[in-house]
Every structure is written in structure tokens, then in C-alpha cells.
Design a protein around this nucleic acid. Structure first.
Lengths: 260, 260
DNA sequence: CGCATGTTTGAGGTGCATCAAGGAAGGTGG
DNA sequence: CCACCTTCCTTGATGCACCTCAAACATGCG
């Protein structure tokens, strides 16, 4: 890629490269401890519903139990950015949203969210190491996916970005279909997806058409997507392997791309 | 901006827009509790030094005490992305770095870092609410800045990105100079900065020249930067006000842009 | 049906990347 | 001290990936 030798700053990067391979068992997803539910308010969300980020002054914590939420940020004089997609098990705190920005937590489809004061959650964590561990892992997973998202926005071309999103959705909400593909709801419109990927909706539509023509994804009714060739899709996203590992390999190995 | 009426998904966004203004005192920075230091290994870093993300198998926590660090991620087949800049007070855990990626924690200049096992830090947090609160705030600040970074990469044009970085550095490491500007070390080369902003180094150089010509920043020796007109700089970054608030307004109000 | 909302596709423009050449700074040996 | 080299930065010319605009096409709902 670089025509000449590596620069010094690039050479530095390799030093701790082997580290991530050694993490091991910490990455298997920890289930949401039921004890949290006794202290939380249970919210049922509908498609498009916006949740207030702070509900009575104090800092608030949200735990996604079902469905998909998006965290959206609109800076003054700039277009909206969908900062994150939140899947079941994810934890969000109201202070994760930057100040002086229009922030919104929006449910993409029907779902269930637990809401509680951060102070109450901290108290639970202090008394129960399992809850502490769950929260630590949820935050780390969120942070790691945000880092991948930053790399996606900063370095990927438009096709790589779209492939990355489809891999992410397939891993978190997809189910194997009898036809051999992976099917999942697409509870966003094109504009939402474009704002997540930092693309133009028109460009996004073109990419999707190209992926359909290539046989990677299939035609399907509105608001659903079918992945016909997951390995081909994953090969188009540099972040695929990382996302697969973060998602905890809930999916059978057969549908994953073979290493190498 | 939009020629017709707002779309439904955009209209949703406004619902909890007022929330961030009500956060209040939680945003004043909490100092690093000294008790953590007794349990940590103190590392002194030099410019360009890479820190191993995990040092003996367990999950590791890092607390920046002095200097600036960068977290860099290189996905296979993609260019490097500098995911985050870490300033004094920031907390990083080894699992914040995505798996299956070349991740590196690199010191940008001379600094001091505290390193310890996550388990030990969790134990401290469970026994001391002040430490719990410090960690909560550090994680929230990191997450909020990552969200702003995502918005920067996804929505800003190149000049807005550069302005955002300069505001960030001025707030965290800048000192008022006798000449009336804000001066700070620039402990990165052009390639590092470009990789943080998702730009090309050539483009970055052009922007800097343009900002110099406009009188916003001044000429200065290598590895230093001078901001001559902070309000003009802040007005070029949609994220400026958010960053100012996150940084805890350590700087006097006089050099901040007036609200409006 | 008629309208509103959302998607697709084409034509054309532009912002940024790429390539290449020249310049400044710092280090090394004579 | 200067010549020389390496590294990094700057700046111009050129091209392409993606954005913008606009029109046609779907889809859902009263």
C-alpha cells in the first residue's frame, strides 16, 4: 500500500498486536442479571418512539432487553449522526450522550427497555460481583463497537461501510432461514442507515442494488433483508471478524466465513 | 437545509433535546482519587512508546495521569484509524479495544500512566463510592467524546474536522500565552492527525495553511501550535460547545466563544 | 383513487485523495 | 563549520468516489 518503507508512527502500531487474541473467555456474553429487573422500570417501546434521556433530573441508565435502539446526535449546523445501534444486553447511560447536542434515544422497532437511576445500578454493582462483571462487559463491548464504528466512518469506502452494517445486524438480530440465508428485520429507513454510515441515502441505495446484483443479498419485502452469501458479505467488511467475536459467536460456525 | 418538510425520523430527534442542558453539576471533572495510586503500577512513558494492552493475561485498566495517549486500531485490509485521544484523568480498559484488530496504545509525548488489574479497580470501586463516581464519570466522558468523534468522522467536512481537533487539544493541553493566544504541544506528526480525522495528510496540510492564512492559527515551531483566534476556530467546529462542556470549562470564559 | 412518504436510478458537479516534485528541519560524519 | 541524508511538511495538477439534484417508480393509507 505504502510505496516506501513504513513511517515510524506506523511501525509503533505493531507492538501489542497479539494482545487481542489472548483475551479468551471474557468475551462470551454475560446474560443480564435478573436482579437488576427488580429495581428497574420496564418500558415497552414502539417503532419510532423516542425515550427521554433523563427522566427526573438524575443520571439514568437504560438496559436493552429486546429490540434495537439507536442513539442519535445532531450537532448545531451539522447533519444528524446515528452514533450507535443498541442491541439486547446493551447498557446506555444518559451521560454517554454529549452535552450541547440534540441527542435522542429512539427505538427502531418494538422492544423492551429497563430504566433506572445510575445510583441504584451502582449500588447493585457494589453488592453483587456478577452485576459488576455484567456492566463491565457491556461497557467494554459498547466501547469496542464504537471504536469499530469510528474506523468504519474514518477509513472504509461506501461498500465496506454497508457490508459492515449488514454483518452487524445479521449477527445481532438475524436468524437462519430455511432457504439457507440469514434473515433479519431492517427497522430503519434508508435515511437512518445512511446517517449511521455517514453516507448519502442515494449512494446507499446504489450500493444495496450492487450487492443484490452480485447475489450477496436477496430481494425481500420492505423492512426485511436477506443475506444470501454471508462469507461474501463478510469478506467485504474489514471489521467482520471483530464484530463476529464481539457478538459472542452466538451464530453457528457454519455460516461464518472461514478464517484465512 | 432540507428543501421540504422534516421527515418523520428527523422530527423524532427533537423530543429529548432539552435533556443535555439539565445535567448540571455532574459535568464538573472529578479528580482522580489518590487511593487508586496505591494499588497501581506507575508507568512513565516516552514519545512514541507503545504500551502493551494486556500485561499478564487478565483484563487491564489504564489511568492517564500526564501526557496524551492515542488508541489506534488497524483492521485487516484497511488503513489505520486513531480511535481516541486520551488525556489526563481518562480511563482505558484493555477490552475497550476491539478484538481481531491490531490495537495499540501509544504515548504521544512524555507522560505518566497508572496500570492495574480491572478486578483490583472494581474492588476499589465497590468499597469507595468516590472511586465509583470517578470511574462512572470517566467512562461517560470517554463515551461522549467517542460519540462526538463519530459525528465528526461521519458528518463534518475537512475544515470542520481539523477545527474540532484543534479545539479538543486547546481545551485539554493548551495554556494561555502572553501574546493572547492559546499554545499547546502538537505531539503528533501529520500522519497521526490525519488518521485521527479520517483525512489525507496532504489535505490536512492544506487546511492548516488555510487556517493560518485566515489568521485563526499562527505560525510556530515544529510540534507546537498557536491558536490566535479561539472564537473563530470554535465557530468552525459544530462540536466546539460540546467539547468545551465535556472538558469541564477549565479554561476561563474570556477565551471561549460567546453563546449565540 | 389521490396523496404522502419513501426508494431507486440517472446526469452532472465537487471535495477530497492521489501522485509527484520541491522545500524546511534535524541529525551525522567529515 | 559545511555537505549530505533522512524525515517530514507543503503545494500544485489531476482523477475519482461520492454528493447533489431531479424525475420516475413503489408503497401504504385515508
Amino acid at each position: 500500500m505504502a510505496s516506501s518503507a513504513k513511517t515510524r508512527s506506523e511501525a509503533r502500531s505493531g507492538t501489542s498486536a497479539l494482545c487481542s487474541a489472548a483475551k479468551g473467555p471474557a468475551l462470551t456474553p454475560v446474560p443480564v442479571p435478573a436482579a437488576i429487573g427488580y429495581k428497574a422500570t420496564i418500558l415497552r417501546t414502539r417503532r419510532g418512539q423516542a425515550l427521554a434521556l433523563c427522566f427526573d433530573g438524575g443520571e439514568t441508565a437504560f438496559i436493552v432487553r429486546a429490540g434495537v435502539l439507536t442513539l442519535q446526535v445532531t450537532l448545531p449546523g451539522s447533519a444528524r449522526q446515528v452514533v450507535a445501534m443498541l442491541f439486547p444486553g446493551d447498557v446506555l447511560r444518559s451521560n454517554f450522550a454529549p452535552p450541547h447536542a440534540e441527542s435522542a434515544l429512539v427505538s427502531a422497532g418494538a422492544g423492551e427497555v429497563w430504566r433506572m437511576r445510575l445510583a441504584a445500578l451502582d449500588a447493585l454493582a457494589a453488592s453483587d460481583p456478577a452485576i459488576q462483571r455484567y456492566l463491565d462487559e457491556a461497557v467494554a463491548s459498547r466501547m469496542a463497537r464504537l471504536a469499530l464504528h469510528a474506523a468504519t466512518l474514518g477509513q472504509f469506502d461506501c461498500e465496506q461501510r454497508v457490508a459492515t452494517l449488514l454483518v452487524e445486524l445479521a449477527l445481532h438480530t438475524g436468524v437462519n432461514s430455511p432457504g439457507g440465508g440469514i434473515v433479519f428485520d431492517l427497522p430503519f429507513n434508508r435515511k437512518d442507515i445512511a446517517d449511521y454510515l455517514g453516507l448519502n441515502p442515494d449512494t446507499l441505495s446504489r450500493i444495496m442494488s450492487r450487492l443484490k446484483a452480485a447475489g450477496v443479498i436477496g430481494h425481500s419485502e420492505r423492512n426485511r433483508a436477506v443475506i444470501r452469501d454471508f462469507p461474501a458479505l463478510a469478506s467485504r467488511s474489514p471489521a467482520a471478524r471483530s464484530l463476529i467475536e464481539i457478538s459472542g459467536a452466538r451464530r453457528g460456525e457454519a455460516s461464518l466465513p472461514t478464517p484465512g
